[in-house]
Simulated scan of single mutants.
Amino acid sequence: MAAAGRGAPRKTAGGRTLAWDQIRPAPVILVSGTQTFLADRAIGVLRDYLRAEDPSVEIHEVYADSVGPGELQTLASPSLFGEPRLVIVRGVEKMSDSFLADALAYLASPADGATVLLRHGGGVRGKKLLDAVRSAGDRGIEVACAELKKEQERHDFAAAEFARASRRIRPRALQSLVTAFSGDLAELAAACQQLIADTSGDITEAVVDQYYGGRAETTAFAVADAAVQGDYASALGGLRNALSSGVDPVPLVAAIAMKVRGLAKVSGSRGSSAELAKRLGMAPWQVERAQRDLRGWTDAGLGVAIQALADADAAVKGESRDPVFAVERLIGIIAAKGGVRGGRRAAGERPGR
């Protein structure tokens, strides 16, 4: 059983820890981590796989804090006709003492034809059971479902969604989509599936904009793009349109900061895009884009931009009575590649301040 994806397994004391999209049958499976969406995805993949293998599979779903003594063994034991069994135990981080004892006993001698899946959502409770699964050899595997905190991780997740469907999405379109749904992995997955279902051919940036151009983060990304490229008029116009439609200044500054951080990481680096991507923790196309955007920038200009970003970030988070002006000034500095555009206002000499 193998699902296409980019989750990389790592070694543990008992063997392999699998990514969510590498889940496979085993006597006992520990699905660990705080990322609920990925955990539910993994459980669904396993359930569908076992049903495809044998439609008669018996599926039981229980909660660890309400399972009675001996109930786990009963659910996993062969039935009269010997159908395969899948027992999904949720909330293992809230398990009772009796369940812990039963689970440890079961792990030592799993029932034939049964798969017991333990869903642990994080925390220290149940560590003894988790460690036992991790060191159980062939009797147990762990499937890790950690939060995807880095942009590159969300980028890889979305890319895998399209790869599984054998659909091509252009790099800029993928970046726009990931940026549009930076705060919710479930929404990002749903957006990927909607584009896969509703469109044909290559998915372009125009297609993504047609579906999700109203997302605040997408708007912020467009403003940041224009500013870094030196297109002051477009960046300022995009900013004012975004603000008039209710976009908060905070994600606007965050989007610009993301772009400038990419420039700073690539600036002065030597090597192929693949080499730099591996070294800097970026995708190759992101490196190539940053290399193009760096034209006209100097190290001194980047230093000015980074300081301006720090000032603007503080301003939009409560240190200024006029956060909109702070973003306008930031865009002037970024569009001038570390200089100043926009006259007195861009220079911070607003009357009455």
Rank of each mutant, 00 (worst) to 15 (best):
A159I: 03
A159V: 01
G82F: 03
W20M: 03
R10D: 12
R344T: 05
I59W: 02
A26H: 08
A39V: 11
Q22N: 01
A300S: 10
V324P: 01
Y49W: 06
A227V: 02
S320A: 15
S200V: 11
A76V: 06
W297P: 07
G33K: 02
D322S: 13
E349F: 14
A111P: 00
P323E: 13
A326F: 03
F81I: 05
A146V: 00
A206D: 15
R295K: 15
G5P: 06
S200H: 09
G301Q: 06
R329W: 03
P55H: 08
G7A: 14
A216Q: 06
V207L: 13
V304W: 09
L72R: 11
R139S: 12
A197N: 04
K149Q: 13
L107I: 10
A144R: 08
V31H: 09
R261M: 04
V62Y: 00
T36G: 07
T218V: 07
P251Y: 02
Q210A: 15
P110W: 12
G318K: 10
A39S: 15
Q152A: 08
V223E: 02
A222F: 04
I23T: 05
R350P: 06
A189H: 02
H120Q: 05
K128M: 01
S176I: 03
T36E: 15
A114R: 01
F162C: 08
A190H: 02
V62N: 02
A242Y: 00
A255C: 11
